[in-house]
Design a protein around this nucleic acid. Structure first.
Lengths: 347, 347
DNA sequence: TAGTTATATTAACGCGCGTTAATAGTTGCT
DNA sequence: AGCAACTATTAACGCGCGTTAATATAACTA
């Protein structure tokens, strides 16, 4: 139970003042310090195993070196977020490179305002990355007004917050156009999430626009709402199959949900893509391994996370980028879950 | 750009001293405070939107209220950790309930000692949860000696650290015995990870012990090493199939890796479970949705995370539990990827 | 009324570090 | 030698809060 090593100890051992220690270890070159002195200090620090106390440093410098990753979903849903590993991976990568730390939080729906205020006022963190935003987030305005850098991973309409996202609308449109290009006309849709989640709306719009520009009427009976999990895809695909509506293809706006749809189709004695073509969205690591490998839209999840970090770090340095939105490209990855209509048996 | 609200402001507004404010807001009842005074303080705090500064609080109280979740793998591997969402979900759940925060870090192999020292000495965090430990972790000893609560999620041989884990050995043994019970005699094995990861060794032992107690000789040529990702399962299963060795079943010690094996089997023109039975390990949310649904060992991942938190919190309160190891039960979940040997075609 | 206890409140210090303004030391130039 | 212009170093304050020891007030006794 040895006493904590402070900068004073280092100063004593190096026979200099505490200030000098601070200057040396923080590379403050505004006041020049003799190289030998600096070396002496560094040596002493290493010898004592000195690490500056994070709280004290934060208090004195008014910078915590923490950035907050904030989820707007409850833990139950977080558990089934198949993207999370990639996101976290990307963030940890960048964050560590810049000697920052990552603080993970989630906010209860309805508690957003309170939580955001607390996070910013208590100054737990220097900046915020907000995941999977919802249009019904009651705290966004507080975040906009608070004097803290914020990056949204995703899209919030009419917000002044900076954001990093893909063009969900165009990507979804491209996916559905792929189906149309294969000759499909009756195309169902299962969303990735409930509609308060902006990505769900965007992808649904993409679906509609693709139909529209091909002159195919939109049929609300062919649309179902997923909720991140495979289970919802299973249920909704069953519902579609039971509805009696005819369709030869489905756009499922989430790979995880699509996997549920796979099961429903398979249980109904139908085959993919022989009877039904499926396009997913996300390109999870597992999507190329399921049978048949899923045609899907590649989301550069790791890159989104990294770019969000980079953007946030620029904001923290009070650099203001020209554009408020960073839009990353997606790619349609064609595998074996889609096929030309001629070759399929019409349902 | 209004100045930060401090406890002094609250004191001024409530016409009391700063100390009283602190007593009221921290529920210190050693000195009794008149209810009306307390109410006045609370009102003032709310009115001003006062939130105590986290750094100052940490510095003064010597408690950061952060617990560190530490990964011992590089971000590339973290990206393919299909368990992570459940783990994080469980931890966020508990942590939030107790007004703590979660700080996520990863340590580079070889940098463990340095990183652990920094984390503990800099006192960024009050406690540590160490994920997927490796036997070749060079910093474990430092962690044992450091005066900071640590919980290991998993198992480290010969360590004095507290840990929460399942009995990987018995679970694996049960899984393989299930195959043996179905009449299989030639059973291959693909590990979940490289052998420095303790869970991989344990599960491999379980496989060996099941063979042993059934009087089946162990054949090293039937064993391959996976590395968390589906891709490795694909590659290793291909290698097994190409080896010319006969086997009618495989124990794949990770569902994600098993999915890769599925693909290899399927590409080889074989069927599961007709030609090959497969047992996985983990019971990922997706495992019941793939085709055929995977027989696997259920890992209570979320519960492991929660229990780790609870244990850590006890340690942080300087309560020392009787047992150093918490062992959670697993369940073998039998689905459709395994079948009696008689009904299968022998490979 | 004076003395005693219980109750309520505050002044003041310390946590460990960053940083400014001031001081001591050194060199260059006239 | 005398002054200026650097260079190197330090004393001292503040960040915002927790907490102890001391003080002020009220509430009872005798």
């Amino acid at each position: 139970m040895s006493r904590r090593v402070t900068s004073q100890d280092v100063a004593d051992l190096a026979e200099v003042s505490r200030t000098t220690v601070s200057f040396v270890l923080n590379n403050v070159n505004r006041f020049s310090i003799r190289p030998e002195t600096a070396e002496k200090v560094r040596l002493a620090a290493q010898q004592l195993g000195y690490y500056p106390n994070a709280s004290a440093k934060a208090l004195a410098s008014n910078q915590t070196q923490n950035i907050g990753l904030i989820f707007t979903r409850s833990p139950e849903y977080i558990a089934s977020d198949s993207f999370l590993p990639q996101i976290l991976s990307g963030m940890l990568d960048v964050v560590k490179q810049h000697s920052l730390s990552l603080l993970v939080e989630w906010v209860e729906p309805g508690q957003q305002l309170e939580t955001y205020l607390q996070l910013t006022r208590a100054h737990h963190i220097d900046g915020i990355i907000l995941m999977t935003p919802r249009t019904d987030d009651t705290g966004i305005k507080a975040l906009e007004e608070a004097d803290i850098p914020v990056v949204v991973m995703g899209y919030i309409p009419d917000s002044t917050l900076h954001s990093v996202d893909v063009n969900n609308l165009e990507a979804a449109q491209e996916a559905v156009e792929h189906l149309i290009g294969l000759g499909h006309r009756q195309i169902a849709c299962i969303t990735n999430a409930a509609l308060p989640f902006t990505s769900a709306v965007q992808r649904l719009y993409g679906y509609r626009r693709a139909l529209e520009s091909a002159g195919i009427p939109f049929d609300p009976d062919l649309v179902r709402e997923g909720d991140f999990e495979a289970k919802s895809g299973y249920k909704q695909m069953k519902s579609l199959l039971d509805s009696g509506k005819k369709f030869s293809a489905v756009f499922v706006a989430s790979d995880a949900v699509a996997l549920g749809a796979y099961k429903a189709i398979w249980e109904a004695g139908l085959a993919i893509p022989d009877d039904i073509s499926i396009v997913g969205f996300d390109n999870l690591p597992l999507s190329s391994f399921i049978s048949p490998p899923l045609t899907t839209v590649h989301m550069p999840a790791r890159k989104i996370a990294q770019d969000s970090c980079y953007l946030l770090m620029r904001l923290m340095k009070r650099e203001f980028p020209e554009s408020r939105m960073v839009s990353l490209p997606t790619t349609l990855i064609i595998r074996d879950s889609t096929r030309k209509l001629e070759e399929s048996r019409m349902l």
